[in-house]
Each structure stands twice: as C-alpha cells, then as structure tokens.
Write a protein that binds this DNA or RNA. Sequence first.
DNA 1: CCGTCGACGTCCGTGTTTCGTAAGGACCTC
DNA 2: GAGGTCCTTACGAAACACGGACGTCGACGG
Lengths: 272, 272
Amino acid sequence: MDTPPPGPGPRVLVVDDDRTVAEVVTGYLNRAGYEVEQVEDGPAALERAAARKPDLVVLDLMLPGMDGLEVCRRLRARGPVPVIMLTARGDEDDRILGLEIGADDYVTKPFSPRELVLRVESVLRRSQASAPRPRPGSLLRAGGLTVDPAARRATKNGTELALTVREFDLLTFFLRHPGRAFGREELMREVWGWDFGDLSTVTVHVRRLRGKVEDDPATPRLVQTVWGVGYRLDAEPAPGSETVHSPAPEQEPASAPDLVDGDVHGERAPRP
Amino acid sequence: MDTPPPGPGPRVLVVDDDRTVAEVVTGYLNRAGYEVEQVEDGPAALERAAARKPDLVVLDLMLPGMDGLEVCRRLRARGPVPVIMLTARGDEDDRILGLEIGADDYVTKPFSPRELVLRVESVLRRSQASAPRPRPGSLLRAGGLTVDPAARRATKNGTELALTVREFDLLTFFLRHPGRAFGREELMREVWGWDFGDLSTVTVHVRRLRGKVEDDPATPRLVQTVWGVGYRLDAEPAPGSETVHSPAPEQEPASAPDLVDGDVHGERAPRP
DNA sequence: CCGTCGACGTCCGTGTTTCGTAAGGACCTC
DNA sequence: GAGGTCCTTACGAAACACGGACGTCGACGG
C-alpha cells in the first residue's frame, strides 16, 4: 500500500503541459518539502507513475494527446493513488467527470499555489492517515467486546452484535463501570431512567444481553450475577480464582464518580 | 448578485504607469461598456478604490513606488475585489506571487487588448456569479458516493444524482459524520435547523434519499436504520468481516481537514 | 392569469420489532 | 429443607419503521 517515503518526503507527480504552471507548482511543492516529479503529458505520467509510484498526483485536466480523465482512470486502475485535478473554471462538465472518475479533490484555474499546497497536504493527510477509516471515536472494550457509543455499534470478537436499544444501553453502562456491582434498582435508575418499576425487567434484559454477549449464556463470564445484590461486569477473567461463584465479600464501593450512595439496603423486596 | 445595469456599466480601475498601455486598455474597456478609471501608481489606486469601490481592478505588477503585489494585497485586505494582473512574460516569480496573493487572473505583456477585455468579462461574470466565495470544492466520499458541497453535486458510482435541496443537505451531513448514529431530533436540528417539528419528516426524507442513493432501497447498505435511535451512514462494509484481530490501531484523527468549511449547512430557508 | 410540475411536510395503515410483565421452575444460602 | 433469589419462557401491548398517498406552496411556462 503506502510506502513510507524515506528521506525527502512524499513524492508528488505533477502533470501539466503548461510549463509555467508546472514550474510554479513544482516550486511551491518543493519548498513545502515534497519530492516533485514533473511531466507534460499523459503517457509520460503513466510511465513515471509506473516507474516510481507517487504518493499523490496533481493532474491537469486538459492535456495534449491523452485526456486528463483518461490518465486519471488509468492511474486509478493500477492502485489507489490520490489525485488532485486542475480544471479550468466553469468547466463544469469536466468537474463532474473528475468527480466520477474519482479525483480526491480539484482546484480550478487560476489558482493560488499556496492553496494547492494546502490541498495536497489535506488530501495526503486524509488518504494516508485514515483513508478508509471514518473516525473511531472513543471505544469501550472489555473481554472480546467492543462498543462504539457514537455509532451505536457493538462487536464481539470482531463480529457485529445485533443489540436492541435497552441491551445496548445496558451493556454500555456496564462497560463504563467495569468491575463494579450494581443493584437492579440502580440499573433501572441509571439505564432506564426510572425511579420505580418492576425490577424483573432488569433481570430479563440482563438475560437477553447475556444471550447475545456471552459465549455460553448458561455460565456467564462477562456479566456476572452478584447474589443478593445484582450484576457486575467482569472485564478480565480473574486469574487464579477458579471458583465459579465466589461469594467473596464485595469490594469497597469506595467513591465511584456517579452512583455513590446508591447502595440499596432495605426495600429491595419484590414481594412474591 | 445584481446584474450591472447597462447604463453606467461596471466600474473598472486600471492601474498602470505606462500611459500608452493604460490608454489602450481604457479605450477597449470603454467600448466594451465599462466605466473606466485610470491611475498611474499604487497610492493613487488605493485612494481611488477607497473613494469609489470598483467592480474590478486591472493591475500592473511593475509600478513605481509601491509594488503591484503590495497594492493587490491592500486592496484585498479591504474587500473581495476581483483583480487581474498584468505581468511581463517570463516574470514567473511575479506571476507566482500574484497568484499567491489571490489575483483572479493574469495577462502577460504584451497582450491583446481584446483578450484583456475577455478576461475582464470572464472574471467579472464569475465573481458576481459566485460572489461570496469562489472556493473550490473539497470532496466527500464514501461507498460509491461522491459529494461536492461547493458545487452541490453528488455522484453515485460515476453517475450524477438528481438530489433535491433537502436530500443533498442530508446526504452531505451524513458524509461529514460517517459511521455515527443520529437520532431524528438531531438530524432535524442539524440538517433542517429546526428545534421542533414532525420527526416523520426526517423519516420520509431518509426514505427518499435512499431511493436515489441505495442500490436496493429496500435493503439499504449506506444509510442504515438504527432501531429505536435513528440513522447512520455506513461508509465501510462493516467491521468484523474477516480479520478478527486486525492491527487496527484506533486513534483519533481530527475530523475537519482544514479548508473544509465548518458545519454550515447550506443556505437554509427561513422556515415557513 | 391559470395550469402544471416538483419539492416538501404531514398523515395513515401495516408489518415488524421490542418491551415489560407474569408465572413456573431452578438455584443458592442458611 | 425452607425461604428467598435468580433464571427461563411466554405473551400481549406498545413502539417503531416503512411505504403510500395527500395537500400545500412556489417556480415555471403557456
């Protein structure tokens, strides 16, 4: 794919039959730290690009002989090289074609060389830094799970999970507070936003979540049941402790940022 | 914006210390229906321009006293007035600088007065056509889609799409935030600019957009429905296809490249 | 001036998905 | 073993997304 340019800097291939324009552009790009090669027609461009793959091509649309569009097409056919088109202003048809073929940007003549440099930098940045990647955002992960709250996506070992709204919110909440135990009341308050309600709702949703998240829902390893208290997300499989259900004393609630005093003592009796 | 009325005609300020050149140019421009003023040096040009703002300036690069470039710079500092530079052939450096400063066009001496008139007309035409900003486009793309916000054009796999205003704005917004889920409320706020309103409006427009953008609108691949939440543009096929532990080093790339205008969403109607 | 057309916002009917609750059984703790 | 807690299943109701259709408004052309 991208060959990290060794010494000089990214290679830019400038294709323009107008000597003046080519010189100007080359000068600016050189000063901006690029290694510039300069050709005057399509065939030469293709040849040059084949000989030494450039990191970016600045391509005039109007070329003698082979059309700039054709050149672009052929360049693209070989590999995903970024292309910036130089077009005459008002040549809307050409602009359209430029878009179609897949130029990454275009600049209309006459143009400011400085602007061109900016665009080169911009295109180069976005094409090599994160070309196919839109934006990961802040991800939550634990176990084999990955949750992207912004995209509202969740994956388990790389495969996407089809979670419902409640399931997703529940899982996200757990991932935001791993290792801590939460009572059903607390979960209902934090995830559902209710101060009352049938607590079995929480139970059912935890089960449904387990069904999609756990390898073996019968013996959960991520969403643990804390007997008499509620649930807890175990991010890492506790090493050493082999006991399945360890009634070990719960860790200090200490001072969690959010639901500090949420400890439920008395009134957790659904009353059967 | 407003078409220069035929009466007085657009005002052109000609700045050249060479009397002969100035006269010739003035003559031609006059005959072409322009109202021409003529000065011989930089300070006079600035003064004249300040007194009565010209629609265009024809500026010689080589001026006694103040450099033509400096004049251009100062003119530009006051407002977006179109400038055509007169340069000596071979004055490549000057040409470079001229373009850099932001001349809209240039003509090399010796030149045909008729050509100059043509260029004046051309520049004038396009400067009043796209008065606010002749900014070139920065392209957005994802999937087989390409959107040029500046030109307000969109293509799908090379064929141009006939999108309405709303559809275009909606698509553009999605492309600017790929991979993120947005609720209808949010979309209504961001794309429509409303804080209230029937949310089904969003639904309907998403459907219409899909009808034009998706290969199979019944099973969308680009504009995904996030149940109970809203919609999301999926640029990539979806993670977790093959590679399980891909070397994906998730990071935080800045979203806005640089030249891309903020999040100004087109020209929005005031609201009926 | 009127008729046509396109864009837009709204409304309705329908099929599907999701949610909350109930009820019975299994399990844990004491 | 008893009592309480948790799991599982099932089901009706509500929420939701979607497609179709309608009425309005403005632009355009006759």
